[in-house]
Design a protein around this nucleic acid. Structure first.
Lengths: 224, 224
DNA sequence: ATTAAATTTTAGACAAAGCTAAAAATTTGT
DNA sequence: ACAAATTTTTAGCTTTGTCTAAAATTTAAT
């Protein structure tokens, strides 16, 4: 397998951004979208895209957007893997809360040592999902595409595991904390109000009533 | 307490290098020595020194070498603290061996999060020394100066704890591993050969015979 | 003490990654 | 279809950290 040791921090950040913007599916991503994601200017993005293209990480044609190559995707997946493993570490071992881990993991993921990642994975017991319920790619870049649905799109009576959030901003995460909703929780949809789309749920034996807006930001993994 | 959040990786590396070259004692360090340590050119060092001087981390007078300020020393100690805590983590939690941790810790120490360091410290049980027996500064930058002596300078009959190595290159560290000598071991000096200065030791109940060269690279913490 | 050697600094360049402003290409609206 | 709006790229400049080559200073040697 090809391996590109010589990636700068910035290149790694771009690769991850392009991967996520393309939803991991090698779809074309616009310069502007990347610029927004990276909080930089489109002209800077163009420059970087050229470099990544020369290194074989992305496909690029002027004015036509950019898409990941097979190799670029593999590279992005190792970064995603590292990021999510570190998030698990921070939550499980260092008692960070769910909504604090991202920035630190963002830094830790850039540490270059294959052995470190492998050992960390082992230390954590080979976790399948990160604290946000997102799947952790294997060393080979494979991961089960979780069957995730938004809670408001799930039929009444459905049961599943809370595996993720759509909105991962601190305000929303804090709401969940306050209402004792956490990843890994078993959730059952008891009823839905016609009037406002709000839901009655059972979580950890307790009944809860949430608005449709909340439901629309919670992913449920259907254990079918 | 002053805190300088805006340090680049490179600045941090220089500060640590200058601190170590000055043995933590704010002695004057030469441009050439720094250049050698940092594997760069003296002219680059001069440039960086000016920047560090402007930031109040070092004292600098043209042609007269450079020394740490109080503030620079504090800064260096937080880096040393991070480095050594990560080394403990790698050895204790991820089963890295003693001689593999340095490069990875070198990267991990640059991660910026006070909370991360505090939690890591707690997670590790507030260790006092790293896997090489070097003391870990407290959050406030304090640390017990271990009473360390080279094994060959210790009188016959002395007892103590193996707390460090002078030569920390892989070959030497591997020798120690092979001969079952590790940090934290209780060592007793049984006898010394007049002829070649070699030593008879008792380590973990076993008798061992080592050359003077080996003894001259092992630090013993005298538990007086 | 004065010259030779070594060290240190300056001056000028370069690569990486970013920016602004302007030009070029594409897309959109009527 | 074609002008207007938007998007993308280019050109040229900035900063950080590095380099080489040359100049300045200090140290060493006779």
């Amino acid at each position: 397998m090809l391996k590109l040791k010589l990636m700068t921090l910035s290149e790694e950040d771009y690769i991850k951004a392009i991967y996520h913007l393309g939803k991991g599916e090698r779809t074309s991503v616009s310069t502007n979208a990347i610029a927004e994601q990276m909080e930089t200017k489109p002209s800077s993005v163009t420059d970087m895209i050229k470099k990544l293209s020369e290194k074989g990480l992305v496909n690029y044609k002027k004015y036509k957007g950019v898409s990941m190559t097979e190799f670029g995707t593999k590279t992005a997946l190792t970064l995603v893997r590292k990021h999510r493993l570190w998030e698990v570490f921070l939550v499980e071992k260092l008692d960070f809360s769910w909504d604090e881990v991202h920035d630190v993991a963002e830094q830790l993921e850039h540490v270059k040592s294959e052995k470190l990642v492998d050992r960390l994975d082992k230390h954590l017991g080979y976790p399948q999902v990160d604290p946000h319920g997102d799947p952790i790619p294997s060393k080979e870049g494979e991961f089960k595409k979780a069957v995730k649905k938004l809670l408001n799109e799930v039929p009444i009576g459905a049961e599943g595991i809370c595996v993720g959030v759509k909105d991962s901003t601190p305000p929303f995460l804090k709401f969940l904390d306050k209402n004792n909703i956490a990843l890994g929780d078993a959730i059952q949809v008891l009823d839905k109000e016609e009037f406002d789309g709000s839901l009655h749920l059972k979580i950890k034996g307790k009944d809860i009533h949430i608005s449709e807006q909340i439901a629309a930001n919670l992913y449920l993994k259907i254990t079918e």
